[in-house]
Design a protein around this nucleic acid. Sequence first.
DNA 1: CGGCACTGCATAGTCAAGTAAGCAAATGTG
DNA 2: CACATTTGCTTACTTGACTATGCAGTGCCG
Lengths: 121, 121
Amino acid sequence: MTEDQKNELLGEYLKRSRLSIPMSLRAVERATDGVTNGYLSQIESGQIKQPSPNVLYQLASTYGLDYRDLLVRARHHVPVAESNEEKTSELAGIPLRALSDLTPDERKQVTEYIAWLKTRR
Amino acid sequence: MTEDQKNELLGEYLKRSRLSIPMSLRAVERATDGVTNGYLSQIESGQIKQPSPNVLYQLASTYGLDYRDLLVRARHHVPVAESNEEKTSELAGIPLRALSDLTPDERKQVTEYIAWLKTRR
DNA sequence: CGGCACTGCATAGTCAAGTAAGCAAATGTG
DNA sequence: CACATTTGCTTACTTGACTATGCAGTGCCG
């Protein structure tokens, strides 16, 4: 499936979802916070390629769709797992953040360096 | 914490994260796909309030930050998590245990060692 | 000292998302 | 029939994310 086809699908999918309820463009405008009927028309016709997450969230809510799925269809990056920001980046201090883009070789050196540090206590 | 404070924090947080690695604005530009140094400067100084998910994803990847957390800090709607997985017991191949019991002094030494490793690339 | 490379940053311009206004075709209503 | 309302849709315009370019400061090497 080409990217164009997938882009095309977002608008068609949203239009199908709206009609299945069914709601008019202006009904959606009233139900959402700031998604105007003209703009929605542009989205459904594919003129808007990548609506913002906020707009997608509004539509997902009023249509009863899965927000995550809309993000994917709009080709946005979607987070995978629960946030463990505290643990991975903050809790153990600065070193953890710096570790993530090391090469395997460098990791080994860091590990050995840590071990060596502990022997000097 | 007010919403304004949280908005303000995105840039500062990203700057802190970049400096802790440490990388220059241009190093980030090289490491990412399309995040220019000037633009990153704007983000860090708060001139850009809501960088796109894609940009946040690039930065999360190169800094080793949690993408979901960045989305929240940028005030984007975030899909609910799929499941509560076990938190990783290691990061970048280095056991968390090896890092969590370091003294602040030792962490500083590790940080400097990592920075030094990266200058030798 | 000169020159070179790299730093952060300022800024004018570009581009796509999003708004506002209105038009033509249905549909309804008396 | 006349008229009002609602429909989907178009389009000019605004706004803000993002790009391209360049400039001043700093350190380094000869």
